[in-house]
């Protein structure tokens, strides 16, 4: 079991259990984490699964590919930790990952 934590803009946090291989977006959607809309269902084509990854976890992620970077151009607010959660594939190395959700996605 892998633990993931979502913190919203108000600072409220939710810790959830995930399984190896699941995407972070999938965990959010199946647990109805507010603020993760995931309109494209994980195709890296809508940008509504934006999260901000804490620096200590960011370094453990593979760098974003071209399409993810293209979509990240338009997320608000764009921060150094901004990633699309559908492109984050969970593994034991990411056990404990903490991300913040933005105020809104569109």
């Amino acid at each position: 079991m892998i633990k993931v934590t979502f913190i919203d803009t108000q600072g409220a946090s939710r810790a959830l259990d995930a399984v190896d291989g699941q995407s972070l977006m999938d965990v959010a959607v199946s647990n109805r984490v507010p603020g993760i809309d995931a309109d494209c269902g994980g195709s890296c084509a809508c940008g509504t699964c934006h999260v901000m990854v804490a620096p200590e976890w960011l370094v453990k992620l593979p760098p974003a590919e071209d399409m993810e970077n293209a979509m990240l151009e338009f997320v608000e607010p764009r921060t150094p930790g901004s990633r699309l959660s559908c492109q984050i594939k969970l593994s034991p190395a990411l056990d404990g990952i903490v991300v913040t959700t933005p105020a809104g996605q569109h």
């Binding site: 309109d39 195709s43 940008g47 979509m71 151009e73």
Partner: peptide
């Protein structure tokens, strides 16, 4: 929400919400 009416990708409808 997973429909094509707003398009997808970099041109996805900016006014969808």
């Amino acid at each position: 929400r997973q429909h094509l009416s707003f398009g997808f990708g970099i041109h996805r409808c900016v006014g969808n919400r």
